[in-house]
C-alpha cells in the first residue's frame, strides 16, 4: 500500500516517488552536462573511415574483411602521378607473355584495370570500380617499380559507414582512421 498522506501535508509525495523524481532530475542534469562537455569539444558534422595511403601495406585484408560482400575499398588512380608506362607493373603480371590486355598477362585478378592507348608510347590506366575488389595487388605492383599512382581508398558511395570499421581492426599497418566527413578522402598528390 502507498504511504497514507500525513495530516497537514498539502501535496503528498511518497518516499519512493521522491527518490524517483530526484533520480530523474539527476539523470537529466547528467545528460545535459554530458552534452555540454561534448559540445565544448567541438561539434563535428560527422566522421567517415578512410585509408592513409602512406601507411597502407597492401596486405589484401581490404578485399576480404569489409562487411559488404563487395568491399567498399577500391583502387584509385592518381592520374597526375602516373607515368602512363607502356609496361605498367601495376597492370601486368610479373614476366608477362606479351604486353597485351589478355587476362593471363594481367596482375589484377578481376581485370578491373582498363588500359587504353593515349599516344605512343603512353597508355592510360583506369579502374573499373564495379570489378575492383580492393585486393591491392596493383597497388603493390605499381609501388614496387613505378610511381605509386595506384592506391586504395574507401569509396563513400559504397561504404556503409559502420560505427566500427571491420577492416580497420585487422589492418596490419593501422592505416585506417576516421577523417572529417567534409574531406572524406586521403588522396595521393604529386610530390614536388
Amino acid at each position: 500500500m502507498p504511504n497514507p498522506p500525513k495530516s497537514g501535508q498539502v501535496n503528498p509525495v511518497s518516499r519512493r516517488q521522491f527518490f524517483r523524481n530526484g533520480a530523474r532530475v539527476a539523470a537529466m542534469t547528467g545528460l545535459g552536462a554530458l552534452t555540454g562537455v561534448l559540445a565544448t569539444r567541438g561539434t563535428a558534422a560527422g566522421w567517415v573511415w578512410q585509408i592513409d595511403p602512406a601507411k597502407c601495406l597492401r596486405c589484401g585484408n581490404c578485399a576480404t574483411h569489409c562487411v559488404l560482400e563487395q568491399s567498399a575499398v577500391k583502387c584509385v588512380q592518381a592520374y597526375a602521378q602516373c607515368g602512363y608506362c607502356q609496361l605498367c607493373t601495376g597492370f601486368f603480371a610479373p614476366e608477362p607473355n606479351e604486353l597485351t590486355t589478355a587476362a593471363e598477362n594481367q596482375l589484377c585478378p578481376t581485370s578491373a584495370i582498363q588500359r587504353t592507348f593515349v599516344e605512343d608510347p603512353y597508355y592510360q590506366y583506369s579502374i573499373d570500380e564495379n570489378l575492383c575488389i580492393g585486393c591491392g595487388k596493383c597497388v603493390e605492383g605499381c609501388l614496387r617499380f613505378g610511381n605509386g599512382s595506384f592506391f586504395l581508398q574507401i569509396r563513400h558511395d559504397r561504404c556503409l559507414h559502420c560505427n566500427e570499421c571491420a577492416i580497420a581492426r585487422v589492418c596490419p599497418g593501422e592505416a585506417f582512421r576516421r577523417v572529417p566527413a567534409q574531406s572524406p578522402y586521403l588522396l595521393k598528390s604529386v610530390a614536388k
Partner: peptide, 21 residues
C-alpha cells in the same frame, strides 16, 4: 620514378573521382 609525360595529342587527364558519403 617516371616523370608524368607531356602529351602532344591533346589528351586530357581525368581527375580522380571522390564520390561523397
Amino acid at each position: 620514378l617516371f616523370p608524368p609525360p607531356e602529351f602532344e595529342s591533346g589528351y586530357r587527364m581525368p581527375v580522380t573521382t571522390t564520390p561523397p558519403g
